[in-house]
């Protein structure tokens, strides 16, 4: 649990645990409502043909986030 990076930096196929959402306002609400609360396991599934947005497996659903939004989620790599 040492190194903290943002969600958008993870490569396809990697898994991480959410540490904190650093966004404010509506974006923060949205991300939390998607289930990105601390301790949640997130898997990077794929990137769109041009690299952005990125699709994640969040609590069983595949959700696409734009790179800059994913950059607001701090995670620590898992496994």
């Amino acid at each position: 649990m040492s190194d903290t990076i943002t969600l958008n930096c993870l490569g396809n196929g990697s898994i991480a645990l959410v540490k904190e959402v650093v966004a404010e306002g509506l974006t923060r609400r949205r991300l939390l409502d998607l289930g990105l609360v601390p301790g949640t396991k997130v898997e990077v599934i794929r990137r769109s043909p041009v690299g952005d947005p990125i699709a994640f497996n969040i609590r069983g659903a595949v959700i696409a986030l734009r790179r800059e939004v994913a950059g607001k989620v701090l995670v620590s790599p898992w496994g």
Binding site: G35, I58, R59, G60
Partner: peptide, 9 residues
């Protein structure tokens, strides 16, 4: 049913 955890929210 295939995604219960998210839906229970």
């Amino acid at each position: 049913a295939t995604c219960l955890e998210r839906n229970l929210n």
